[in-house]
C-alpha cells in the first residue's frame, strides 16, 4: 500500500461514522494492526486532529458569547447577577478539567435512556453521552469560565476617561456598551484571550482519556498516538508527530488571533504589537 493509498484510506478515519450523512469521504474501518508505517501514523494522527480542531473551534465560538455575558454579570452591581456568575467561574476554574469530564459523563449517563416526555414530544438523551456533544458542552463551559475571568480583568481596566468621554458625547446604555465598553474590553483582553485559546486547543486532548469513550475507535490525535505507542511500545515516533501537529495548530491560532488583534488596535499608532504566546501565564 503506497502512502497515498494510506492517506485515502485513513485521512477521515476519526469521523468515519459520520461519512454517510455529512460530506465526509468513507474510510477504512479497521485500524492497522501490525507493521505500522510512518505514513500510517502521520495520517491517522492527523485524522484525529479533526476532533481537536472541532472541539476547540466550537467551544471557543460558543464560549466567547457566554464569557462576555458572564464577565458583564460579574462586573454588575446587582448581586443576583454577580453571585451566580462568580460561582460558575469558581466551579469551572477551581476544579480540574479532567474531573469535570468524568463528572459530566457520569451525570449524563444517568439520564433516562428512553428520553424525556415534554409536552408530548420525546426528547432523546443518548447523544449527550457521546463525546462530540457531551465533551463539547464541558469544554464550552470550561473555556467560558476562563475567558470570563480574562474579560472581567479587561472590563476593570478600561480607562475611566474613555467612559467619561463616551458620556460627554451623550452615549448611554446599549450604544455606549456597543461602541466603547465592548471594543475596549476586547482590545485589552485579546492577548490573554489568545493564550486561553491556545490552551483550550491543548485541553481538547483530554477528551478521550477521561470518561468519554472513543466510539468505534474514533478518537482524537492523542488517542491514535497512544494507540500506536501501545502497539509498537515505542513512544519516540507517535508522540513527536502529535507534538508537531500541535505546534502547527498553535502557530495557526497565534496567526489568526494576531490578525484580529491588529484590527482591534488599528486606531492606535503603535500599540498594535504582535500577539505573542505568553507562556508565563498558563490559563
Amino acid at each position: 500500500m503506497s502512502c497515498w493509498d494510506t492517506v485515502r484510506a485513513y485521512a477521515f478515519r476519526s469521523v468515519h461514522d459520520f461519512s454517510d450523512w455529512w460530506l465526509i469521504p468513507a474510510s477504512e474501518r479497521l485500524l492497522p494492526r501490525s507493521d505500522f508505517t510512518l505514513c500510517q501514523q502521520v495520517t491517522l494522527i492527523g485524522s484525529g486532529m479533526i476532533w481537536n480542531v472541532y472541539f476547540g473551534v466550537l467551544a471557543l465560538a460558543f464560549g466567547f458569547f457566554l464569557a462576555v455575558g458572564l464577565a458583564m454579570a460579574r462586573f454588575s452591581e446587582n448581586a443576583l447577577l454577580r453571585k451566580p456568575a462568580d460561582w460558575f467561574v469558581f466551579l469551572f476554574r477551581g476544579s480540574p478539567l479532567f474531573i469535570q469530564f468524568f463528572l459530566a459523563y457520569e451525570a449524563l449517563v444517568l439520564l433516562p435512556r428512553a428520553g424525556f416526555e415534554i409536552l408530548g414530544v420525546t426528547v432523546e438523551t443518548g447523544w449527550l453521552t457521546r463525546a462530540w456533544a457531551g465533551a463539547l458542552i464541558v469544554l464550552f463551559f470550561n473555556t467560558s469560565a476562563y475567558a470570563a475571568e480574562i474579560f472581567l480583568g479587561a472590563l476593570r481596566s478600561i480607562p475611566k476617561g474613555d467612559l467619561e468621554a463616551a458620556e460627554a458625547y451623550g452615549l448611554t446604555g446599549w450604544t455606549k456598551f456597543r461602541r466603547i465598553t465592548f471594543p475596549t474590553m476586547l482590545r485589552l483582553a485579546w492577548p490573554g484571550y489568545t493564550n486561553e485559546a491556545i490552551f483550550l486547543f491543548h485541553a481538547t486532548t483530554l477528551v478521550f482519556f477521561s470518561g468519554f469513550p472513543a466510539w468505534r475507535q474514533m478518537g482524537d490525535a492523542l488517542y491514535y498516538a497512544n494507540y500506536f505507542a501501545d502497539k509498537t511500545f515505542n513512544p519516540f515516533v507517535p508522540y513527536p508527530i502529535v507534538a508537531l501537529y500541535f505546534v502547527a495548530l498553535t502557530l495557526l491560532v497565534i496567526a489568526g488571533f494576531g490578525a484580529v488583534n491588529r484590527r482591534l488596535n488599528r486606531h492606535l499608532p503603535d500599540a498594535a504589537g504582535r500577539v505573542r504566546a505568553r507562556p508565563q501565564i498558563v490559563r
Binding site: 491543548h202 485541553a203 492523542l222 497512544n226 508522540y239 507534538a243 505546534v247 498553535t250
Partner: peptide
C-alpha cells in the same frame, strides 16, 4: 509553548 502537557505526560 506549542504542545499539550498530556502528550508529554504520556
Amino acid at each position: 509553548r506549542g504542545v499539550p502537557d498530556v502528550v508529554f505526560f504520556l
